[in-house]
Amino acid sequence: MSKGIKFPFPGLFKGMALTFKTMVKKAPVTMYPDVKEIPVPRARGVISLDAEACTVCMLCARECPDWCIYIEGHKVEKAPSKPGGRVRTESILDRFDIDYGLCMYCGICVDVCPFDALFWSPEYEYSEMKISNLLHNQERLGEWLKTVPEPPALES
């Protein structure tokens, strides 16, 4: 009986008292499917796309570390705003997919988008039985936009 171990082994029983206390207390559990856990506003849950704002600049696709954003677009000529003016081109977004099977939720795409077309939504319930369904297309990404919360107030 060396090493600071004394006979009636008080430590063992103190530990048992603690587990007993824990047992009679209410467990800090969120009953998930019944009760949803509310994530914080900044949580990086899913990326939503504001297709109106996107100018198909491709910055996000280029900066994504694992290249999981697929963008296709084409240019159309727009009639000059006043007769005789310059013919301008406009980019039209044909395809905007994010593969959440690859995404590592780093947030770089949202950071680099210069036109504020991408936002984080804290939504997290979009698991799929098939990995290919994790590829969210433009429409689905646009739907997430509704769930983007207001930014939290700041610490002064």
Binding site: T19, M23, A27, V29
Partner: peptide, 13 residues
């Protein structure tokens, strides 16, 4: 059940 509650869980539900 008891074990779960001792571990601050709720166990089978």
């Amino acid at each position: 059940k008891a074990g779960s509650h001792m571990q601050a869980r709720i166990g089978p539900y």
